[in-house]
């Protein structure tokens, strides 16, 4: 903040607190002896010190009564005032990464990788961090296994025990959801379609189930009273199907 302030007002942070003798001179240089009761003025400075550095304004009578007046910052300097993403032509990357919703899980980034890759790596010791913390022994060359060495890989016949079959378990895919979406337009009740994706509304539906049962019962009663071919029940059945 102070840097901004000083830039705007033609001063830099390199200066010490006001009143100190080093104010009138470049930082890091010992101040020359100055008579007491004399205010350091830019006009009184030796010319070589006044010219030093790009920031300090040239000394002269014109600067009075101001001293330590600095040059204004160059206007074309690249600052946070400009949109840096646009400046570095990163709009495409920005739109690509932030424009669409990125799926949270690692399996959506590496869909062809077998196994449960969405679990934290620390659970089964497969984390990349552990590779950095405890780097494996490198430097040995890989050589193919000869006949004698391959005898060590003779396996027993039969399936693997249950605990070692994790590799073939794939994370559940959301194909079934797509199916539901395709079915929705055929649904005879359009007001039900948008609520399927909302879990809260789903819950509500389930909560409403007893009410619907009551309604069904009422309709059944009406059916019995008036006409047995009343279509009321058939209209409610797709709703229950859409819940499944």
């Amino acid at each position: 903040m102070t840097e901004m302030f000083s830039n705007l007002f033609g001063q830099t942070e390199a200066q010490g607190p006001p009143g100190s003798s080093s104010l009138a001179f470049g930082p890091g240089k010992p101040p020359p002896p100055m008579p007491q009761n004399q205010v350091p003025m830019a006009g009184q400075m030796p010319p070589q010190l006044g010219d030093e550095g790009p920031v300090l304004r040239k000394p002269g009578v014109m600067n009075e009564p101001f001293y330590l007046l600095r040059e204004l910052p160059v206007g074309n300097e690249l600052t946070g005032n400009t949109n840096l993403i646009t400046h570095y032509n990163l709009e495409h990357s920005y739109n690509k990464s932030c424009g669409k919703k990125v799926k949270e899980k690692l399996s959506s980034f590496l869909p062809d990788l077998p196994g449960m890759i969405d679990c934290p790596g620390t659970q089964d010791g497969s984390s990349l961090r552990s590779l950095i913390d405890k780097p494996p022994v490198c430097g040995n060359s890989f050589s193919p296994l000869t006949g004698a060495l391959l005898t060590g890989f003779r396996l027993h016949t039969g399936p693997l025990p249950e605990q070692y079959r994790l590799m073939h378990i794939q994370p559940p895919k959301k194909k079934s959801k797509h199916k539901h979406k395709h079915n929705r337009p055929q649904d005879p009740l359009p007001q039900e379609t948008p609520s399927d994706s909302d879990p809260k509304k789903k819950k509500k539906k389930r909560d409403d189930d007893p009410d619907r049962k009551k309604k069904k019962k009422d309709k059944k009663k009406k059916k019995n009273r008036h006409s047995p071919d009343h279509p009321g029940l058939t209209g409610s059945q797709p709703n229950s199907n859409s819940l499944r």
Binding site: V102, E104, K105, L106, F109, C119, G121, T122, L128, R129
Partner: peptide, 20 residues
């Protein structure tokens, strides 16, 4: 990025969050 992968998260999220 390694932390994201270790947590089972999509590393593209890192790029997204960096840009944001």
């Amino acid at each position: 990025v390694f932390e994201y992968i270790d947590q089972g998260r999509n590393p593209q999220l890192y790029t997204k969050e960096c840009l944001e």
